[in-house]
Design a protein around this nucleic acid. Structure first.
Length: 618
DNA sequence: ATGGTAGGCGCG
DNA sequence: AAAGCGCGCCTACCAT
């Protein structure tokens, strides 16, 4: 390891960048919000050569700056380049990413661990070497951090060759890697840097509103909750403050269960995974029809309202301010985490913001810019109907019909708006193998629809009679998976589901086997829908940036952009064209004979959007 | 104090 | 005959 701290050593580094086509780079930083300028770069290491080679380490200082031209002209392999390249970009270094060892391992088996520690153990037989607590990285001697940093790059480079051989041996994975993953890493860096604009006064306003709502709901609940039975709940309930006596905490599932099942003697309708009585929203809804001594039905509704308000307050309103820097939040996207190939997002999770307009109106409000939302219409249903080659569904989509309405008409024999809502729960639930009971729960919880047991069974049967190819596709997927224990998405992503091979006769494992089978049915659909959007994102990003616009969020089947007001039509045309164009799938050997439709909406905020109508065409 | 799990619930 | 899938993150609770 050479610490670059003289012009002679810098020259040596430069010669290496000129002589080697590929090097490995890795950085060490402190843990903080980089967009608030709080993160410190501690060390940068670069490694060259396989058997014989050299590793150079820089401190974040003038020598690193002197090496900038070489750092930016070298082709690098990184382990998790999304992070390292992003961070270096924030410090002004644009490092070309040629390969990513974490991406390779992820594609080979998305269920397997993919840390550098694990893969260097697997491919190189090397043992653990990480002995630094990143939270206190500055407390360690710099040389110690640098040595670990250097070892990271040596291992990255050493793992690269065997991983590349495995990827290259799999033409399908190679295509996903080259045409989707690598471009998406670069594109997601752009999305992350762009960030989501926050209308801070609106955040403050809503936060205050919810504080009041929670207070009054809590007061109502406390005043209608019976006193606990100390004999049953012997520890007693915690005191909220010094002045009050034992007080009920509606956020405690144990206490809620005590009230419902011990004091009011309500029946236990559902159990949790560990066998305790469930107090989930669905249970509460069902309990509303029961009558027992002292039981007040309205209490259940109040508790559900309280939980809802508390949830959005704690998970969103309360947590968001700490993520805001320069008026924006910069969610971290993970491209290499979800087993199906979807993205995930965190700190904050921008993909689970409540649909409530008041919440989504917190985002946007940038003077001179328009919020543009582009989302696929029923992406997974379209892809499933193509995979299953379900003739009735395919025809509906090819004729641009509303599939939910069609299901309402054909399965429920009812064309009212209420029936369409029921039909939606059938389409989305039964597609992935829900049984009658789950169907009832989905309908209740997500669509506010109450189905009797008979209705649920009946609808399920009629549904598969109406779309018989869907049932056939389920059957084929299941049988293939049980034999092979592995499933591939149409684009070539792979997922190993060994539990599917468990014999039926092993009774206690049947649940696991069933779960694997349903995962296997879901995976190709979710995976392909996700890849279609990722590919669009990769193509759209550079084009709209040339017009001063940027992609600011990805929500599974939706892209959100911030567009200069006078470029809205131009950008919308590009976005719609790229999202609806699926001809590139031919490169993956796919001829998608179902149209993918993208709806575009525009407005000032995420929560106040109207349909985009092309000028002179609306 | 700190860490991990359970239950619950927001989104696609 | 029966079986939704995929996430992140909050609080409560219990173990260390």
């Amino acid at each position: 390891m050479i610490v670059v701290d003289s012009s002679i050593k810098l020259d040596n580094f430069r010669r290496h960048t000129e002589n080697y086509e590929l090097g490995a780079v890795d950085i060490e930083t402190t843990i903080a919000n980089p967009f608030a300028g709080e993160t410190k770069l501690v060390s940068v290491a670069c490694s060259f050569g396989d058997v014989v080679g050299q590793t150079f380490v820089f401190k974040d200082d003038e020598w690193l700056a002197s090496a900038k031209p070489n750092l930016e002209s070298q082709q690098w392999v990184m382990h998790n380049g999304l992070f390292d390249r992003l961070m270096m970009l924030l410090w002004g270094y644009d490092l070309p990413l040629a390969h990513d060892t974490m991406a390779m391992q992820y594609l080979l088996d998305p269920d397997e661990p993919k840390s550098l520690e694990k893969i260097s153990e697997k491919f190189l037989g090397l043992s653990s070497y990480k002995n630094i607590d990143y939270h206190n990285i500055l407390d360690h001697p710099w040389e110690e951090v640098a040595e670990m940093n250097a070892e990271d790059t040596r291992r990255t480079l050493a793992c690269f060759r065997p991983l590349a051989d495995l990827i290259n041996a799999d033409p399908e994975l190679s295509r996903v890697y080259q045409w989707i993953i690598l471009p998406a890493i670069n594109e997601l860096i752009e999305v992350t840097v762009a960030g989501v604009p926050v209308d801070e006064p609106r955040l403050t306003e809503l936060t205050e509103l919810y504080a009041g709502v929670i207070d009054s709901l809590l007061w109502e609940i406390l005043n209608s909750t019976p006193k606990p039975d100390p004999a049953v709940y012997k520890k007693g309930w915690p005191k909220r403050n010094k002045t009050t006596e034992e007080t009920f905490n509606p956020a405690s599932t144990k206490q809620v269960a005590h009230v419902l099942f011990d004091l009011w003697k309500l029946p236990v309708l559902e159990k949790t995974a560990t066998g305790n009585p469930s107090t989930g929203a669905d249970t509460l809804i069902q309990l509303e029809t029961f009558y027992t001594e002292g039981f007040e039905q309205e209490w259940l509704g109040k508790l559900r309202e309280f939980r809802k308000a508390k949830k959005v307050n704690d998970s969103y309103l309360k947590s968001w301010p700490k993520f805001i820097a320069n008026g924006r939040m910069n969610p971290r996207y993970k491209l290499l985490h979800v087993v199906t190939g979807r993205l995930s997002s965190s700190e904050p999770n921008i993909q689970n913001v409540p649909r409530n307009k008041e919440f989504r109106r917190i985002f946007g409000g940038v003077e001179g810019y328009t919020w543009m939302k582009a989302d696929y219409s029923q992406a997974e249903l379209r892809i499933a109907s193509w995979l299953a080659q379900e003739p009735t569904m395919l025809q509906a989509y090819q004729e641009n019909k509303d599939l939910h309405a069609l299901t309402a008409e054909l399965v429920l024999k009812d064309s009212t708006p209420g029936a369409r809502q029921v039909a939606k729960s059938l389409n989305f639930g039964l597609l992935y193998g829900a049984g009658a009971n789950t169907l009832r729960r989905i309908a209740r919880l997500q669509y506010g629809v109450f189905l009797s047991e008979d209705e649920a069974h009946q609808h399920r049967e009629t549904f598969f009679d109406t779309y018989p190819a869907l049932a056939g596709w389920h059957e084929r997927s299941k049988n293939e998976l049980i034999l092979s224990g592995v499933v591939r998405s149409p684009l070539g992503r792979v997922r190993y589901l060994p539990n599917a091979k468990i014999p039926w006769k092993v009774e206690e494992m049947r649940g696991k086997k069933m779960h694997a089978i349903l995962e296997g049915i879901n995976m190709p659909v979710q995976s392909m829908a996700s890849d279609v959007l990722l590919y669009s994102m990769n193509k759209i990003g550079p084009q709209v940036r040339a017009l001063g616009a940027s992609i600011i969020a990805e929500v599974h089947d939706e892209l959100d952009l911030l567009v200069p007001d006078d470029r809205v039509d131009e950008v919308a045309v590009i976005v719609k064209r790229e999202m609806e164009d699926t001809s590139w799938l031919e490169r993956f050997g796919i001829n998608l004979d179902v149209p993918m439709l993208s709806d575009i909406e525009v407005g000032t905020h995420w929560g106040s959007l109207t349909d985009w109508k092309q000028n002179g065409n609306g």
